Lab assay of single mutants.
Amino acid sequence: MVQRGSKVRILRPESYWFQDVGTVASVDQSGIKYPVIVRFEKVNYSGINTNNFAEDELVEVEA
């Protein structure tokens, strides 16, 4: 279970941040499909630095 402030590695192959490390900004408990919002240092092609992920697409590298 990841929690706010954890450092996580992204396992979603189609993601711009695949294999990159980001910080968990928040975790939604309402039961949505992609409840974990992760914030990154670098921006993607659209200038965005956050994205939603499912918990099984993340691996915690640092608490």
Rank of each mutant, 00 (worst) to 15 (best):
S6D: 09
F40E: 03
E41W: 05
V61T: 05
G31M: 10
E14A: 07
Q3V: 12
F53Y: 06
N49Y: 09
V43F: 15
F40M: 01
D20C: 13
S26H: 14
G22K: 00
P13T: 11
F53R: 00
I48P: 05
V61P: 04
V2A: 05
S46M: 15
R39M: 13
P35H: 08
V43K: 14
K7L: 13
F53M: 02
K42H: 11
D56M: 06
T23S: 04
Q19M: 15
Y16D: 08
A54D: 08
R4G: 06
G47R: 00
V8W: 00
N52T: 08
A63R: 12
Q29N: 12
R9V: 08
E55F: 15
E62A: 11
V36T: 00
Q3M: 09
V24R: 00
G31D: 12
F18P: 03
Y16F: 15
K42R: 13
Q19R: 08
V24A: 02
V27Y: 10
D20G: 05
L58M: 06
T23E: 11
E60K: 11
T50I: 12
V27A: 03
N51A: 15
V24F: 00
N49R: 05
W17R: 00
R39T: 13
V61L: 10
S26L: 10
M1P: 12
D20P: 00
A54K: 08
K7A: 06
A25R: 05
N51C: 15
R39E: 13
S6P: 03
K33R: 13
D20H: 11
E60Q: 11
A54E: 07
V43N: 12
S15R: 00
F53A: 00
E60L: 15
F53C: 06
S6E: 04
G22H: 02
E60C: 12
V24L: 02
E14W: 11
E62T: 12
A63D: 13
G47T: 02
G22V: 06
I10N: 02
L58F: 05
W17S: 00
L11H: 03
V27R: 04
E60M: 14
W17M: 00
A63W: 11
R9F: 00
R9T: 05
A25Y: 09
I32F: 04
E14Q: 09
I32G: 14
F53P: 01
Q3A: 11
S30I: 05
G5M: 00
E14H: 09
T50V: 13
Y16I: 05
S6F: 00
A25T: 14
R9A: 04
V61N: 03
Q3T: 12
E14S: 14
A25K: 09
Y34N: 07
P13N: 06
W17E: 03
P13W: 08
W17K: 00
F40N: 03
V59N: 06
Q3I: 10
I37N: 12
F40H: 01
Y34S: 05
N44W: 09
E14V: 03
F18H: 06
M1W: 15
R4S: 11
T50D: 05
F53H: 01
N51F: 10
G5T: 03
Y16P: 08
E55C: 14
I37V: 14
R9Y: 00
G31R: 08
Y45D: 15
P35Q: 07
S26Q: 10
I48C: 15
P13K: 13
K42F: 07
D28H: 06
E57L: 04
V38N: 00
V21F: 07
M1R: 15
V2S: 04
I48T: 12
E60G: 08
N52I: 05
D20L: 10
Y45S: 15
Q19C: 14
Q19K: 07
Y34L: 08
P13R: 12
S30W: 05
V24N: 01
D28W: 01
V21M: 04
N49I: 06
E62G: 11
N49L: 05
G31P: 06
V24T: 02
V8C: 07
A25W: 08
Q29K: 13
F53I: 01
I10Y: 02
Q29H: 13
K42D: 10
K7E: 04
I32S: 13
Y45T: 15
A54S: 10
V36N: 00
S46K: 13
P35N: 12
G31K: 09
I10V: 13
A25L: 15
P35C: 13
D28M: 11
L11R: 03
P13M: 09
Y34A: 06
A63F: 12
G22P: 02
V59A: 11
K42S: 12
V38D: 02
A63T: 12
E60S: 10
N51L: 07
R12Y: 04
K33S: 09
E14R: 05
R12M: 05
P35A: 08
N51T: 11
S26T: 08
S15P: 01
A25H: 11
T23D: 03
F40K: 03
N51D: 15
F53G: 02
A63P: 13
D28Q: 08
S30Q: 08
R9N: 04
S46D: 15
N52F: 09
D20A: 09
S15I: 04
R12D: 09
G5Y: 00
D20Y: 09
V24S: 01
G31T: 07
K33W: 05
K42G: 06
S30M: 06
Y45W: 13
S26R: 11
P35Y: 09
Y34M: 07
K42V: 07
E57K: 02
E60F: 11
R4F: 05
A63V: 13
R9M: 07
N51Y: 10
A54N: 09
K42Q: 09
V27W: 04
D20T: 09
E57Y: 03
V27C: 08
L58D: 02
G5S: 02
Y45G: 15
N51P: 01
V43Q: 11
V59S: 09
V2R: 04
I32N: 11
Q29T: 14
S30C: 08
Y16H: 07
N44F: 06
R12E: 04
M1T: 14
T50R: 04
V21I: 13
R4K: 13
N52D: 07
E14M: 05
M1H: 14
V2N: 03
S30V: 04
A54G: 09
S30G: 10
K33D: 11
E62K: 11
I10C: 09
G31I: 09
V8A: 01
G22W: 05
M1D: 08
E62F: 12
Y16A: 04
N49G: 06
V59C: 13
E57V: 01
K42W: 07
W17A: 00
Q19A: 08
R12C: 08
I32D: 10
F53D: 01
F53N: 03
F53Q: 01
K7I: 11
A25D: 14
M1Y: 10
V8R: 00
Q19F: 08
Y34C: 11
V8N: 01
